[in-house]
Write a protein that binds this DNA or RNA. Structure first.
Lengths: 197, 197
DNA sequence: ACTGTGCATTGATGTATGATAAGAAACCGA
DNA sequence: TCGGTTTCTTATCATACATCAATGCACAGT
């Protein structure tokens, strides 16, 4: 068994015994992915939810003009997946790619089924995860509707200071819905303001 | 009991007996709201999920500059709520307001608890609802990241042709993240294109 | 029928951000 | 250490959309 972070994540959130979790986790494959390798490509059916043990993963889409739009970043201890593709068994619209050499636990639907059957508290926990996810998406929509480039960047910095330093600005720009050039301008402007004070 | 749509909605999605649903629904209050009345205001704690029996409800936020941003429209047979406020017991960032005289069923957390205890299939159903919600939000984010004003409007028309005719353009504009003036111009341009063909 | 209020349209103008291109800097991998 | 990518910055120009302001409608209340 080689997924200490996921084990810790589950034991600290679920009412579950050490050996119980071990026997369930045994069924999960751990995968090492090199930087730039793909866990999912557009039009594939996503079969897994990935738990990031180490490294950094990005989920993004490509529009008709060929531009990338970052959906999410997933560092250690985060999940990443096209849950809709998994759940509704649809072709995915997204790419999931490693930004660093990473280790991910591949979790399939059976895993969730087993958990919800064997661990009563799992249902609630899963519910909470889903609600958290929704809250997060809600907030982002609100931001995209109302905030200008500078505000978006500031919110990102406040929310993900760690990620900021690990990914190229191009990708942060594509997360914020602006061009890399605009982001560069925003940063310059912010630096100027801070200097003045 | 005065919530025929909700009853139908539940019985057609859950493995449940007629009288069982009736006894559970009995605990829910049905509320009539006049056009423009509020079901929730910013900074209040949202205590209910509202199921719209009839009418039309809007959820929106107001930013620092006083501009409204429509989060969602909820016509008949839809749910509307600040689920995050309910679930995490936080102050809400949103307003929920009737756009037409409406009837809503006020569903509290106990209702969900009762359902999940008494109806085994409810857990799965609830899960499905949450996943659907997430899919929906995901799609909107993708749209906001990648589509121009015209595309956004076209997507809206395709997705909610019914709502289109029932709400002022100002609000549709605020849903799409553009100004009413821009929306007016987009529509004019589209009309011109269609005429030419 | 009159009048007020809100909404949609239109035009003139402004501005933030996009597009393009080119140079500078940082980051590999050999 | 070098040479080559990739990323970041900077500059110019272009444009979609916002802002501001005026007008026209339509509907509701008196």
């Amino acid at each position: 068994m080689n997924s200490p972070s996921l084990k810790l994540f589950l034991t600290s959130n679920l009412d579950i015994e050490e050996d119980e979790i071990l026997s369930i986790l045994k069924s999960c494959q751990v995968k090492s992915v090199k930087k730039d390798a793909f866990l999912l490509r557009e039009n594939e059916h996503c079969k897994h939810t990935f738990f990031v043990e180490s490294g950094l993963i990005r989920q993004y889409s490509i529009d008709d003009k060929g531009k990338e739009h970052t959906i999410s970043f997933a560092p250690e201890n985060w999940f990443v997946s096209d849950r809709e593709s998994v759940y509704f068994d649809e072709a995915s619209a997204y790419y999931i790619q490693a930004l660093e050499d990473s280790e991910v636990v591949m979790i399939d639907e059976d895993f969730f089924l087993t958990l919800s059957e064997e661990i009563p508290s799992f249902t609630d926990f899963n519910n909470k995860l889903l609600h958290n996810h929704i809250r997060h998406l809600q907030k982002r929509i609100n931001m995209l509707l109302s905030a200008c480039a500078e505000q978006r960047y500031l919110e990102f910095v406040a929310m993900y200071p760690d990620i900021l330093l690990r990914v190229p600005q191009t990708m942060i720009a594509s997360y914020l819905g602006i061009t890399p050039e605009s982001l560069s301008r925003v940063r310059k402007e912010l630096a100027r303001k801070n200097f003045k004070k």
